[in-house]
């Protein structure tokens, strides 16, 4: 299961906090989200260190950009925590 097929199957979606969220819990979806979020966190931490920002600031910024960039028809979480299709 890779990210694109997981998103197209509506299993995972982008969240404002910059991390991948599980929309429909399946073992593969949870494992994929866990793996991707760990790698995203490391990347955010590196950017934060390089730019004197904090991890959360970078993550939130990445969250906005990821929501803008993700394919239409996939799930995104609204600020008040609802999953909607973009």
């Amino acid at each position: 299961l890779d990210l694109d097929s997981a998103k197209s199957q509506g299993l995972v979606g982008e969240q404002p906090n910059g991390y991948l969220g599980v929309v429909k819990a399946t073992p593969d979806a949870v494992a994929l989200a866990a793996d991707i979020n760990a790698k995203r966190r490391a990347a955010y931490e590196a950017i934060a260190r390089k730019n004197g920002a904090t991890l959360d600031q970078v993550a939130i910024l990445a969250g906005q950009k990821a929501i803008e960039k993700t394919a239409p028809g996939t799930y995104v979480k609204t600020p008040d925590g609802q999953w909607i299709k973009k």
Binding site: I47, N51, A53, V58, A62, K65
Partner: peptide
């Protein structure tokens, strides 16, 4: 920061 984030998102399609 935004430039680095943009680059990260566009480059790393696996993430």
């Amino acid at each position: 920061v935004e430039k680095d984030v943009e680059q990260l998102i566009s480059q790393d399609s696996a993430l």
